[in-house]
């Protein structure tokens, strides 16, 4: 263990709930030192299966998460949950209410539930989520569940950080099945027709099947499964869990887990570099009197955005070329 490892990390690895909670706050706030924390957690990650749950608001995600957590606990596994609400405003207040549904495991400290707003999105909400997952993973959670509302690219990016992605589709919601075309169809490993107690569930299963058959997969790809659940009563949840386990096994046996991890590391590295570079350039902009000052020169017809960008980046380009 590195001697300069932050104390927070040591406490987290020691199993202190408070330290875990604090680490996630640091990650969410991008507080000074958060990178050192995530970096020190890194070697301790990789033990958790990460499951992403997405779907339209009200499709029953939180209710299902509660039942999944309960089921895992009954198997003797520990659980972490991150409930992300990307629809909350970037700045200002928000109400986070997913926690209300966590009734089955209330008071069980081996279920660590954390609500996250969109506040982290400036630096990439998916990055913040992925880092929070790392904290739960390093803490020793067997299963980590990410809940997020499905629709836009932001949400797709969030669930993509999971090993197994479940998409909830309520019955007979023609719109929802249509919505799936926009990106989510490609990332779903399991499609869950929740609220299977309601009318139209069978038709939705058929529609989904038809759509999935049209999706052009490659040889050796995972064939997306369709499951039916009644999250409210827990019906179908054991089967769903088995499907998740099947997918986990497939990930290992097919070598896809490693492939996915590789892609994720690459993305992470790129994100960090982008973040760092843009920070350096922002500082340079400030040093040159701020963006407004520069824009005023464009306004005055003295220069163009292209010339200015070239000019600002030049020292960086030169420095990198020297290496």
């Amino acid at each position: 263990m590195a001697p300069d490892q932050p104390e927070l990390v040591e406490d987290l690895l020691d199993g202190k709930h408070r330290a875990l909670a604090r680490a996630i706050t640091k990650i969410e706030n991008r507080s000074p030192g958060y990178r050192e924390v995530v970096s020190a957690l890194y070697p301790h990650t990789g033990g958790a299966d990460v499951i992403g749950i997405t779907g339209s608001p009200g499709s029953g995600k939180s209710t299902l998460v509660d039942k999944l957590a309960k089921q895992y606990r009954d198997q003797g596994l520990t659980v972490g949950v991150i409930a992300v609400d990307p629809s909350s405003p970037f700045t200002g207040g928000a109400v986070l209410g997913d926690r209300i549904r966590m009734a089955s495991t209330a008071t069980d400290m081996d279920v660590f539930f954390r609500s996250m707003s969109a506040r982290g999105s400036l630096g990439g909400l998916s990055t913040a989520t992925a880092d929070a997952v790392k904290a739960l993973d390093a803490f020793g959670k067997d299963k980590v569940i990410i809940e997020t509302v499905g629709a836009g690219q932001n949400e797709v990016d969030i669930v993509k950080t999971a090993d197994t992605v479940a998409v909830l589709v309520p019955p007979s919601s023609g719109d929802d099945v249509q919505m799936l075309k926009a990106g989510i169809l490609e990332i779903g490993d399991v499609f869950v027709v929740n609220k299977a107690d309601l009318e139209g569930a069978n038709r939705t299963v058929t529609e989904l099947r038809n759509m999935l058959d049209l999706r052009d997969g490659e040889e050796g790809d995972w064939d997306p499964e369709i499951a039916e659940t009644v999250a409210e009563s827990g019906e179908g949840v054991p089967d769903l869990l088995e499907t998740f386990d099947d997918h986990t096994t497939w990930l290992d046996e097919s070598g896809r887990r490693e492939e996915k991890r590789h892609t994720r590391y690459a993305e992470e590295l790129r994100n960090l570099l982008r973040e760092d570079a843009s920070e350096l350039l922002e500082a340079e902009l400030e040093a040159r009197g701020g963006i407004d000052e520069l824009v005023a020169r464009i306004d005055a017809g003295e220069t163009t955005p292209y010339e200015l960008a070239d000019d600002v980046v030049e020292p960086v380009r030169d420095a990198l070329a020297d290496d």
Partner: peptide, 24 residues
């Protein structure tokens, strides 16, 4: 401008502690 976590009705003290700690 606060971020509010609302945890529902009829909470036992242990649940509130759990939520306060985990949500930091």
């Amino acid at each position: 401008g606060f971020e509010v976590i609302y945890s529902g009705l009829h909470k036992a003290p242990e649940e509130i502690v759990q939520a306060a700690v985990q949500e930091d």
